[in-house]
């Protein structure tokens, strides 16, 4: 006996995902040069806060990454919005460069953290002050 079952595909119209819609529209609100700049600034300042105020070195590193990525956002968006005939898509390329550098930086930074943790048992910035004048 053949079991003629209906296909499991749901042919119903999709229901409106307002959550997603609102998110997209909020993103569209930002998707202007000024908005992106604002976004980048927000990210950057968050990073600055993490680097300057927090003592946990992991957070500091994360702050650094945030700052770098803020720059990335700026670069990419400028490139996108720019009408300047940029043949090489230089903003995108620069962003890729920054990502690469950031990766390297993170690797080195984390390595240092690991060593610091091993030697001192702490990754508190206040515990490493030998470099003072």
């Amino acid at each position: 006996m053949a079991d003629y079952r209906l296909p499991t595909t749901d042919y119903r119209l999709p229901t409106t995902d307002y959550r997603l819609l609102s998110m997209i529209s909020i993103a569209h609100m930002f998707f202007t040069p000024h908005g992106m700049m604002f976004l980048a600034m927000l990210l950057f300042l968050t990073g600055v806060y993490a680097v300057t105020v927090r003592r946990n070195l992991i957070v500091v590193l994360m702050g650094l990454e945030l700052m770098l990525n803020a720059v990335n956002v700026a670069l990419v968006s400028f490139n996108y919005f720019s009408s300047y005939e940029s043949v090489f898509e230089s903003g995108q390329i620069m962003a890729l460069m920054v990502i690469a550098v950031a990766a390297a930086e993170a690797a080195v930074g984390l390595a240092i953290l690991v060593v610091l943790m091993r030697t001192r048992g702490s990754i508190d910035a206040e515990k490493a002050q030998e470099m003072q004048g």
Binding site: V48, V51, T52, V53, R54, R55, L57, V60, A125, E126, A128, Q129, E130, M131, Q132, G133
Partner: peptide
């Protein structure tokens, strides 16, 4: 004379940069 400026505190340095 300028040595005291170097506190050795990471956050202080970052703050100075900013």
């Amino acid at each position: 004379a300028m040595r005291p400026l170097q506190t050795g505190e990471l956050n202080y340095y970052a703050m100075t940069i900013v």
